[in-house]
Design a protein around this nucleic acid. Structure first.
Lengths: 212, 212
DNA sequence: TAGATTGTTAATCGATTAACAATC
DNA sequence: TAGATTGTTAATCGATTAACAATC
């Protein structure tokens, strides 16, 4: 009875919730819980069971009437939807404080993203090691991208240099950009995906709520 | 004609957009643009003029018919709504890679938040300097909070230690928590505001879009 | 079988957009 | 004054919630 899935457009509201489902299911899995009902999960997540069932049914029927959802299976399915199984390759451009802290974060591995290269312009930083990776001079970028598949570029360079750097990377066929400079990057004319991170916005929301 | 403002509840959708307005107005201000219409701003921000006018009128009538909005004034007003003028004091707990990179970030100053203290447990880190601040031993926390008003605690400590640390801080009357451990912190029984940051979720959204 | 819980349709609620009178 | 653009109400659209038949 299930419709062919690919064609219908998934709303942003749903997509935004997927990583959160993935996180909660991962926790359940760690606690050795094998099955969960939409009701129980809803309670844990402070949302409605209806919403969970609606969200999941955008992608297929992963549950079973009378039983609920198999945690391991659902975790794997949501992982698949989010591309965890794709093993994307990522590089970081700009190994200042932020770049360094991202490079040493477990976030990438945990989500099926392989960090394969670090780049900087600063001669004091080039050649140093972060975990098992040695920081390369930015001029090696072209060579590196020709010899390795690079799916995602993490950008922690100054605002002014971000657009030029992105175009350079887009020309090298990089398709995903995770941008930490505090600006809304756009690359018209290129078929790329851009995720702009605004940590300052998050801080300001906290300040707003403190102000109320 | 304007209603008394404080009572009506502002929706989350609106609050989430406020920091973005603030950013765009800041940029306009830097470019010496003195006035802007909702239409022109809407085009810049890729949203509708209607939405801008609706959003702003949650807080008051900041514009003028036939003229538009005074950029400097509107920037200041939105800053006030977001508490930029409040000069909140913040401390960071956990000066590992991430804590260190946050400590050296210009984000705080730019948004009216004063970083006044850094704390860690690691004897190799305690005593080192980040910008003009010296990292203190965590045992000094109680003393420090008694001698200084601390509004916000930035948490970059391991997941397992986060809840205990938060309770300790809440007991010291800290009201705002900016939490970077990858978990959804809750402090039932305390009147506090918590902002959980999930950078991994952002990365996964990018992966999702790359997968499509 | 009886009980539980899904998948899915219908109802509700809220957020966004359109329209326009007020007014600078 | 005429033109522009706001503030605000009404219309639309989409997302969330409720309900329930299907079924494990």
């Amino acid at each position: 009875m299930k419709k062919t899935i690919e064609q219908k457009q998934i709303s942003n509201a749903v997509i935004n919730r997927l990583p959160r489902y993935h996180r909660y299911l991962g926790e359940l899995l760690k606690s050795d819980i094998t099955r969960i009902s939409s009701n129980a999960l809803a309670q844990k997540m402070s949302i409605t069971a209806s919403q969970i069932r609606q969200d999941l049914n955008c992608f297929g029927g992963f549950g079973q009437q009378g039983y609920g959802y198999n945690v391991a299976l659902l975790y794997k399915e949501i992982g698949k939807i989010l591309g965890v199984d794709k093993s994307y390759n990522a590089i970081i451009i700009g190994i200042g404080n932020l770049g360094h802290s991202l490079a040493s974060h477990h976030m990438f591995k945990n989500r099926g993203v392989n960090l394969i290269g670090l780049f900087d312009v600063n001669p004091d930083i080039v050649g140093t090691n972060v975990l098992s990776l040695q920081v390369k001079e930015i001029s090696e970028l072209e060579n590196f991208c020709h010899n390795n598949r690079v799916d995602i570029a993490v950008l922690t360079v100054p605002k002014a240099e971000t657009p030029i750097m992105c175009e350079r990377l887009a020309e090298l066929n990089v398709k995903g950009f995770w941008n930490f400079s505090n600006m809304e990057l756009e690359l018209p004319g290129y078929d790329v995906q851009i995720e702009n991170v605004h940590m300052g916005d998050s801080l300001m929301k906290l300040c707003y709520r403190l102000t109320q």
